[in-house]
Structure formats: structure tokens, C-alpha cells
Amino acid sequence: MSQDTSLNRDDRQAVLDLVRRAARTHLLDGGTQPADRKADGSWVTDTDHAMQADLRAGLAERFPEHGFLGEEMSVAEQEEAWRECLDGRPTWVVDPLDGTSNFRVGFPVFSVTVALLVGGKSVFGVVLDPCRDECFHAARGEGAWLNGEPLSLDDEPKQALESSLATVDFKRLPAEIATRLACEPPYASQRSIGSVALDWCWVATHRVQVYVHGKQKLWDYAAGQLILHEAGGASADLDGEIDYLDRPLEPLPRSAVAATHVELLEDWMDVLRAKA
């Protein structure tokens, strides 16, 4: 695969089928399950590892020349996979279970997220919500879809910030911003659903209009950010750096600010970056 080539239709469908098949096998039994804390404090279950193993094997069978970078790999393995990606090797970036904190206690909001990166840039992304049987995907420069139906924020009404529904992850925000949003909310109402990938997708579907998260990793946003942008949304980080699809993604944790359209993003950024 060259740096500017995406997947063909059959390859895309094969990836969608693989993600759905793995989710049916591992994620739909319900109930609670034991979990352990990782070094960074996040939760991991046997299901995280089983999902990653299935996805890795399926992708390797279909795309033997591609690399793989999964959340449950060691840091050394992730760093090597990222170096190979920047050197030109097409690389699958995978979070096998985004929302493990929800999953482990039976709270039915979690997802599987898979993105293909070429030269560090997302060219194809999938986010599956198995509990609602919703499969989001996007191809760079071609659009975004939900269960095969096109997603376009151009078709949605442009809302003002004060009438918007927001998803906010207070836990990872700077204390000053979190306190200000809690005490003086600039939006109509706020939610936190516990799956970063679905946060991005729910902005792409206009279910929420603005979003902020203080610290997410490459596998959390590689697919969701592409889906939002291909649907017509906009995003940046808390420093005001606007996201563009032609710019390589960041391997280190980063903040994320998103909105359904550019003007709303600007208003949202003004609030978030205002000094007390």
C-alpha cells in the first residue's frame, strides 16, 4: 500500500466483518467480570486480551504486510510499531475494548475501535458499539457511515453553545477548567459515557454537539477523529492546535476538543481557554 492509498471495498468489508465477529464472540455475554489495574491505573480484563488476539490474528491473515499497534501490547512493542508506522509501514491501531471500566461492571456502553494508519495518518477507521449494534466507519476523503448509511453534519441544524449537549470527561481535565464547567456550564446539559471512541462518534451523529477530554491515547481517537472529520465536524486540542487529517497523529496522550461545526468549535474553545 502506498502512502496515499486507502483500502478497497472488499478489504473494508472484511475489516467490518472481523470486528463484528470478534465482538459477538467476546463482548455480548453481559454481566460482570474480574479486572486488574494496569501500571497507568486503567482497567484490563481477560476479554481485552482475547479481543486483541482475535483482531490481530484476523488482520494479519488479511493484511500480512501490515503492522499492528494494540493497547494491550507492551510499551516497547507499541513504540516499535509506531516507529515502523512513521517509516511507511501501514499499521493497524486497535483498542480492543474501549470502556473497560463500564464493561467490567455490566454498564452497557463500550466499543471496539480499529484504525489503519499510513505514515502516521488515519486512512480508515471503525468504531463498533456492540450493545446498540451500531457500526461507524470512515475512509479518508470519502466520507463516514453508520451501519452503511452516510453521516453528514451538513444536514443537521447548527446549534449555539448555550443550547448544545456536551460530553465532558471531568476526571482528566485541568482542575481550573473542570471547576469552571461544573460551576458555570456554558452548554444546556452534560454527559459522560465512558468510551472515548463513542464520544467522537456521537458528535459525528449530532447526538451531542460539543466534547472535551483532557487525556486520550492514540488508539482511543485514531478512528473516531477520522469519523468525525469525514462527517463534517471539527476538532482541536486544549492548546488551540486545530486537527487536520493531513497531519500525522500524536503517539503521546493528548487532549481533545470537538464540535459538530467549525463555528461552534471556536465558541467552545473560547470558553475552555478563558482565564479565570
Rank of each mutant, 00 (worst) to 15 (best):
G143L: 04
D10K: 12
V168H: 05
E241R: 15
H213E: 15
R62W: 05
E184H: 15
A197N: 00
D48A: 02
R140F: 01
Y244W: 08
N102G: 10
G30L: 01
D169S: 14
A160K: 12
A236S: 15
A53I: 09
M51Y: 13
G240P: 03
Q159A: 11
A276S: 13
G58M: 01
D48I: 01
I193P: 11
Q13A: 10
L97S: 09
Q13S: 03
D270Q: 12
S2L: 07
G119C: 07
D29K: 01
L86T: 04
H26G: 00
Q159C: 01
S2F: 00
V114M: 08
A276H: 10
P108K: 05
A197M: 00
A178W: 05
G120P: 01
W202N: 07
L27W: 04
Y211W: 10
V105G: 08
A35C: 02
W219A: 12
M51W: 10
R12F: 06
G240I: 08
P253N: 03
A160H: 11
R20I: 07
P157S: 06
L117I: 07
A60M: 14
L161W: 03
M1P: 10
P174Q: 10
E266Q: 10
C85A: 15
L228R: 03
E61F: 01
Q3E: 14
E230H: 08
L245A: 15
L117G: 00
L128E: 11
A188I: 05
D155I: 00
E80H: 07
V212Y: 09
P253H: 07
E156Q: 14
C183P: 00
Q159M: 04
L59C: 13
V208G: 04
S195L: 07
T167E: 11
A160Q: 10
L27G: 02
V93K: 06
N147Y: 15
N8G: 15
C183E: 14
A222C: 09
L161H: 06
M51K: 01
D129K: 02
S164E: 11
D155V: 00
D17P: 03
A57Q: 14
V19Y: 02
W43I: 08
W202C: 00
E84T: 00
L69N: 02
L146D: 04
S192Y: 15
V208W: 09
T91W: 00
L165H: 14
L153C: 13
L226M: 05
T5I: 13
R62F: 05
A76R: 11
D54L: 07
P34A: 11
D4W: 01
